[in-house]
Nucleic acid binder design. Structure first.
Length: 524
RNA sequence: GCUCCGAUAGUGUAGUCCGGCCAAUCAUAUUGCCCUCUCACGGCAAUGACCAGGGUUCGAAUCCCUGUCGGAGCACCA
């Protein structure tokens, strides 16, 4: 019994079971596990909280991929909040704000709202003052190192029990910029004897002398730390579910102290491990990539060797393929390796049906073609599974180019796909030199064999281009640039069109540069 | 040093909460065969895993303990 038949039978015998089966199938499409306590909320509200200190690398795609997919799964709401509260160490890159939104769009998602933390400073100040009045924070002028050692010994610093009025005054002075960097911080009073040293009194605000790169925020000097800013914002924007990296595991525990002072309820929170990606030599870190570009080792954020979203995008890999792979990784807290082959497999599935087939001959060897009754053109199909799309028309003049590995031995035949069967005849005097790389030295002679030569005699089928009428191509790959020649039809594409170079792989048409057509290699 | 978290095939994942239907799911990868005028697509098959040791139990991937390995935090970074 086939699958269809079994299904029909089940439908007759037990319609309930069949319905259940269908329901299961639908759930599997979502692939992500249910969010904790999802049904306790009227609306699932999540946020992306990128630091705009540079364009995104591939690992950054995990956050929007998973959160965006959850948004779809629950018909929820998604905020993109730029956590740009460090004008110095992780200084925002003004171009990155748009680059990141563009990347989210490429992945196929749209935030319901976009905010910048640096626009919300007054809100953070207001909440800090309220926290001070609650007795939940104190200004502290201990040098960082001294406080650190006191904290290690679970010892309170002398500033911890200042009256709220004094704290208020000193905090206002911080806001007014009356202190220099390092002179004064505002700390949240947690539990200085907490057994986990990571949770003892943490900094909520510190002074930064360097002005913020955004003009609107350049006058602020007292900047909130992530744990304070993010905690306040998550509550004010009604976030129900936070998903973030394991490096922020202790953040929730720290922020809960603030939430307790305010009488707020902490959102559901999930943590995941770091993503590593195979297949790249370059380290996947914003700062490393930035440095490689500055050194000229990479040509830009979209260099095919760069592990960035801009790069895979330029290679013709669809955002959807990246999202699927990220979703397949799930949300476990272990560190995971993403195999690029998974992205490639997903992308191949997306583009294969629509990609025209074309020939690209890399490092081709020039071979004259002889034979009086040979056809003057080859006509391979545009797509093997779609006859209705028609054939290509590739003229054969006096010679063709083949990839060196495809040039047959003397006397052997080869089938030029869409054209026909030819026999290689090395030049008699220098047959030994035939496989030198300067040129084969022989010629291809039309044999007139029909397709049974391929089916029964095993003559290899190869791709080829005409010697004269072809398109010079620079194929940019992860391993560097490759030069070759494509069939004439390759000249007629638009940027972003994806083709499959037969027996080479999928590639995205990029444009022309100084008479050479540029394509980006995607994957096999 | 203190504190948290984790460990299922090459990779990722399901199952773990509520022990039996798990000699462990699915995808990808690799290999072979079929199809094919591509090494694509499609079809079939093979390969391959419960970190280790104890304990509880009639029964443990699942519960408990110990160990090993890995990760994270203890920043005036995010």
């Amino acid at each position: 019994m086939g699958a269809e038949e079994r299904r029909d039978r089940l439908g007759e015998l037990a319609p309930d079971l069949l319905a259940e089966l269908d329901a299961d199938d639908e759930e599997e499409d979502d692939a992500l596990p249910d969010l904790p306590n999802a049904d306790e909320y009227d609306e699932i509200r999540m946020r992306l909280a990128p630091n705009p200190n540079g364009p995104w690398h591939l690992g950054n795609a995990r956050m929007p991929s998973v959160i965006g997919t959850y948004k779809q799964q629950y018909d929820g709401w998604m905020l993109c909040r730029f956590d740009d509260t460090d004008p110095e160490t992780k200084r925002p890159d003004l171009d990155a704000y748009d680059a990141i939104l563009d990347a989210v769009d490429y992945l196929g998602f749209e935030p319901d709202e976009v905010v910048r933390a640096s626009d919300r400073m007054e809100t953070y100040y207001d909440h800090a003052r309220e926290l001070i009045d609650e007795g939940g924070a104190y200004t502290c002028s201990c040098p960082a190192e001294e406080f650190r050692s006191m904290k290690a010994d679970a010892e309170a610093c002398p500033h911890r029990d200042k009256p709220a009025e004094t704290v208020r005054e000193e905090f206002d002075a911080m806001v007014d910029g009356d202190y220099e960097s390092g002179e004064m911080v505002l700390r949240v009073k947690t539990d200085i004897e907490h057994k986990n040293p990571a949770l003892r009194d943490f900094v909520a605000f510190r002074m930064v002398d360097t002005p913020h790169p955004r003009e609107e925020a350049s006058d602020y000097r007292a900047w909130p730390m992530l744990d304070f800013q993010s905690g306040v914002d998550d509550h004010l924007t009604g976030i129900t579910h936070i998903i973030r990296g394991i490096d922020l595991q202790d953040s929730a525990k720290r922020q809960r102290f603030v939430y307790d002072y305010f009488g707020w309820e902490y959102p559901e929170v999930l943590h995941w491990g770091h993503v590593q990606i195979d297949a790249y030599d370059v380290a996947m870190s914003t700062s490393t990539i930035k440095a490689e570009i500055a050194d000229g080792e990479l040509t830009g954020w979209d260099d095919p060797r760069a592990p960035t979203l801009a790069s895979v995008r330029r290679r013709g890999i669809r955002g959807e393929a990246v999202v699927e792979s990220m979703v397949e990784l799930g949300v476990s807290t272990t560190n995971v390796d993403l195999a690029m082959s998974s992205v490639y497999a997903n992308n191949r599935e997306l583009v294969d049906d629509g990609a025209d087939r074309r020939f690209l001959v890399r490092n081709g060897e020039l071979l004259p073609v002889a034979g009086d009754d040979r056809p003057d053109a080859g006509h391979p199909p545009l797509h093997p599974n779609h006859d209705d799309r028609g054939d290509r028309d590739i003229p054969v003049d006096d010679a063709v180019r083949l990839e060196p590995d495809d040039v047959p031995a003397d006397g052997e035949r080869v089938w030029l796909k869409g054209y026909g069967c030819l026999r290689y005849e090395a030049a008699s005097e220098n047959a030994d030199a035939a496989d030198g790389d300067g040129g084969a030295g022989g010629e291809l002679v039309w044999t007139g064999d029909d397709i049974s030569a391929v089916r029964e005699d095993g003559v290899p089928v190869v791709h080829w281009v005409p010697a004269e009428e072809n398109v010079r191509v620079r194929l940019r790959t992860m391993d560097g640039d490759v030069f070759g020649r494509a069939e004439p039809g390759f000249a007629s594409y638009e940027p972003d069109d994806v083709v499959q170079f037969e027996r080479v792989g999928f590639a995205r048409y990029d444009g022309t540069d100084d008479g050479v057509t540029v394509a980006y290699y995607a994957h096999p």
